[in-house]
Nucleic acid binder design. Structure first.
Lengths: 133, 133
DNA sequence: ATTAAATGATACCATGTTAGTATCATTTAT
DNA sequence: ATAAATGATACTAACATGGTATCATTTAAT
C-alpha cells in the first residue's frame, strides 16, 4: 500500500526546491537535475501546479517557475488533492449506491473519523514546514 | 484517491457478517447473498482470510466459515495489511535508493508521523467495534 | 457407493491507473 | 533569427484492481 503517488512526491520536492530559492526563476531543467527526476514528467507536474496557481510560469528564454503563493499556504493536503483527488479512506460506493446495511454505515463512521484525522494532519504540514531547518 | 481497496472492504463486511452469527457456519453463498457482493470474488477473499487463520473453513456439504479468533482481536489495520501490504503514506524509494537529500528526509519525517497516527487509529478499530449496537 | 454441496487452488482476463515519453506550438531574451 | 524556455496534448508500457472460470478435493446425506 502506498498512498502518495509519484507525481505528488515529485510535486512536493519541486515546490520545496523552488521555495528555497528566494529570488528569480527556476527552470524545469534545473529542478529536474537538482532532484534527479525525469524532466518531461516534471514538466507535466509543474504545468498542473501552474494551472492551479500554486506556481507562476514564465515562458521564453530565461523563463522558469516561481511560487505563486507563500510556502506556508501550500499544504500536503493541497498537493495530494490536486493530483489524486479528495482524500478518502473508502469511497463507500456500492455500484453507485449508498450503504444498504447498518453495519456498513457503522464501518463508514469509523473510517470517516480516521479520515478526518488524516486530512487535518495533512493540512497542517506545509511546504514551509518541510524546508524549515 | 481511495485508500482501501474493494477486497478489504468486502473482507471487513464479511467478517462482520460472520461475527454476528454466534454459532454454526456461514457459507460463502450465504454471505455473498447477504452482502450482495460477487460470490467468486468473495470466495477468494475468504480463502485468504482462512490461510491467515482469521477464519476457519470447513469443507464439504454443510461446510462454511466461522471466525478463528475473537472479533476484538481483528483490527482494520490487520485486514488492510493482509490484502494491501504494510500501510504507508509514501514508500520513499527512489530507484531502490534512499532519500539523497535532506529536504526529502524532512518530508519523510513529517509523513512518518502522520503514518503512525493512521496506523494506530486503524489498529484501534476492531470487527467487534464495527458490529457493536 | 453415489451424489450434492461446500471449499481449495489456480489460471485467466478486461479495465483503469501509474509513471512516464514524445511532439509540436508558442513565447521571449539575445 | 535563433535558442531556450514553457503550453498543450497524444501516446505507451507495465502494473494493479476487480473480478470470472475451472477443476480438484472434502464431506454429509441418501
Amino acid at each position: 500500500m502506498n498512498l502518495i503517488t509519484r507525481d505528488v512526491d515529485y510535486a512536493i520536492r519541486a515546490l520545496c526546491c523552488i521555495a528555497k530559492k528566494k529570488e528569480g526563476l527556476y527552470s524545469v531543467a534545473e529542478i529536474a537535475s537538482c532532484l534527479k527526476i525525469p524532466l518531461p514528467f516534471l514538466r507535466k507536474i509543474l504545468q498542473i501546479l501552474n494551472k492551479e496557481n500554486i506556481v507562476h510560469s514564465y515562458k521564453g528564454k530565461g523563463g522558469g517557475f516561481k511560487l505563486a503563493i507563500d510556502p506556508d499556504k501550500i499544504s500536503l493536503s493541497d498537493v495530494i488533492t490536486l493530483f489524486q483527488g479528495p482524500i478518502s479512506l473508502n469511497d463507500h460506493t456500492f455500484k453507485r449506491r449508498k450503504c444498504p446495511h447498518i453495519k456498513e454505515c457503522n464501518l463508514k463512521k469509523k473510517l470517516d473519523r480516521i479520515e478526518k484525522i488524516m486530512v487535518s494532519e495533512l493540512k497542517a504540514v506545509t511546504i514551509r514546514d518541510i524546508i524549515r531547518h
